[in-house]
Write a protein that binds this DNA or RNA. Structure first.
Length: 198
DNA sequence: CGAATGATGGTCT
DNA sequence: GACCATCATTCGT
């Protein structure tokens, strides 16, 4: 039960453009529900971004996206998975970063229990729905601050090589390289596309 | 390897 | 009524 001790990032860390936060959050630690690891994949979603829930303005679902920097936005996708986002930019601007994959470092037994039947540890948290299941994230923390939710983002502990590639699972603005990944990580939701590998 | 598919239900037009 | 910021499984090469 020994967690990492990285100092939490300051709130100002999130008060920037989502693509910058997504790039800089790679290599940071995340901890929630007695488990956590190192963030190796994150995607940016902006206010003017046709792929973003906030693109057409505030609705009941995406209301949290317009909260202050560091607000948690959790939504349900495909009727059965939760996705975890962290709001960037000032209150009133609908922008966020989707946490897509982490390398598990602590509470691994808990994660294995929550993801019963998964043998390969690379699949424990390799994907937005998988990691929320492993960390026990659900909509009960939607709209909360990190502190209120007990969700910790720790300062970067490892200097990783970050690459921006096209986002996954969207049909609009697919050319934007706003999926930020740690080059060489074995824990990504999907490999870096060949066209962007070198 | 990759492509195809069912599960499952909210959200928004 | 269409569209999903997904996952696990099955089937084909």
């Amino acid at each position: 039960m020994s967690g990492r001790r990285a100092r939490p990032v300051a709130t100002e860390f999130f008060n920037r453009r989502p693509e910058d936060v997504a790039a800089d959050i790679i290599g940071c630690t995340i901890s929630f529900g007695g488990a956590g690891g190192v963030i190796v994949e994150a995607e940016a979603y902006g206010q003017r971004d046709p792929a973003s829930h906030s693109f057409r303005g505030e609705t009941p679902r995406c209301r949290s996206m317009f909260g202050p920097p560091g607000t948690i936005y959790v939504y349900r996708t495909y009727g059965l998975h939760w996705c975890l986002n962290l709001v960037t930019e000032p209150e009133g601007v609908g922008a966020a970063v989707l946490i897509r994959a982490i390398e598990p470092t602590h509470g691994v037994d808990r994660m294995r229990a929550r993801r019963a039947g998964i043998d390969d540890d690379r699949l424990l948290c390799g994907g937005p729905g998988r990691l929320t299941q492993a960390l026990a994230v659900d909509d009960s923390i939607d709209g909360l601050s990190l502190a209120d939710a007990g969700l910790t983002i720790g300062e970067r502990t490892a200097q990783l090589d970050v690459v921006g590639v096209p986002r996954i699972g969207i049909s609009q603005a697919t050319e934007l390289p706003w999926r930020m990944v740690a080059r060489g990580s074995r824990y990504l939701s999907r490999p870096i596309p060949r066209s962007s590998a070198a």
